[in-house]
Design a protein around this nucleic acid. Structure first.
Lengths: 155, 155
DNA sequence: CTGGGTTACGCTCAACGTAACGATA
DNA sequence: TATCGTTACGTTGAGCGTAACCCAG
């Protein structure tokens, strides 16, 4: 059961017509026909009644397609979250910094971040160098530059 | 973004090792490696840190994989519902019947259904033949046999 | 003849297995 | 050397387009 075939079925249900649904999906009516057949075969049930003037969703199909709509919404939401995380507009940014640079840099950095990236959760670990290298392995995105080791791993 | 690749990533996250994850997925470690690379490329972010003794999920990867887990749960739920509907153990069964056979047959039919298929929602339309044929087009699974037309469409 | 769904045929590319490779302990 | 992950190479099958086909109005 893959998402593409479910999208195909939803488009067909919306239009009630293979040719129009195919247009929306940027595939031919023929390819869509086989895709729907494959889905129905895989699920072991007919989702559409074929008539001379188009198709109609079956009773069972209505239930399945309702679930498919939910699932695709869920998938789209995940994709959007990934896109947002990629742009560091959303998500959790966790980094570490030593005591001295923290005192100098943090006020500017944090206020700037809060202004420009309101969707970003920022959390800072102020620790010794040894502790920070340890933390970097497990839950930090990067370290601000410190005296002896200058790590800049972007997460 | 297809469900197969997400399953692959989750298996890898669980085992922390390509070979073991591949075993669980019934593919080779090589195929899994390329699948993960393709997913990371598609999402535009690294999900795993590669080390000499295996892999670890990145900070971003933890967020993505949490969403993937939800999504796959949702997909499995949909598949289970389809399987149940196929066996008429769950779902809504809607059928119509004329007044006379209703009086004779319904008591036996309904009590039998309630006993053997407790997960099944049954609803009956008792109507004239003309009304029932009309309803059959829109929301009934089948009609019980009537005087002149004997329709037995299983939904 | 037109507008709808299906079937036949051939192509392409994503996914795979095998095997060679590179790196690290 | 043993155990990781990656890369090279060839094969297979799902998915597609084109075109022929079938049926109803």
């Amino acid at each position: 059961m893959d998402l593409r075939k479910l999208k195909h079925a939803l488009a067909l249900a919306e239009t009630g017509n293979y040719a129009r649904a195919g247009k929306k999906l940027f595939i031919t009516q023929s390819a869509l026909s086989r895709s729907i057949q494959a889905l129905e075969s895989e699920l072991g049930m007919m989702l559409f009644e074929r008539h001379s003037n188009g198709v109609r969703v079956t009773v069972a199909g209505q239930e399945v397609l309702a679930g498919a709509r939910d699932l695709l919404r869920h998938a789209n939401s995940l994709e959007r979250n990934v896109a947002l995380m990629r742009n560091v507009e959303l998500g959790k940014l966790q980094f570490g910094v030593g005591p001295v640079p923290a005192h100098v840099l943090l006020p500017r950095v944090m206020s700037g971040a809060a202004r420009e990236k309101p969707g970003l959760q920022v959390s800072v670990q102020i620790q010794s160098a040894a502790k920070l290298v340890e933390l970097l392995r497990s839950r930090l995105n990067f370290l601000l530059p410190m005296r002896d080791n200058c790590l800049t791993t972007v997460g």
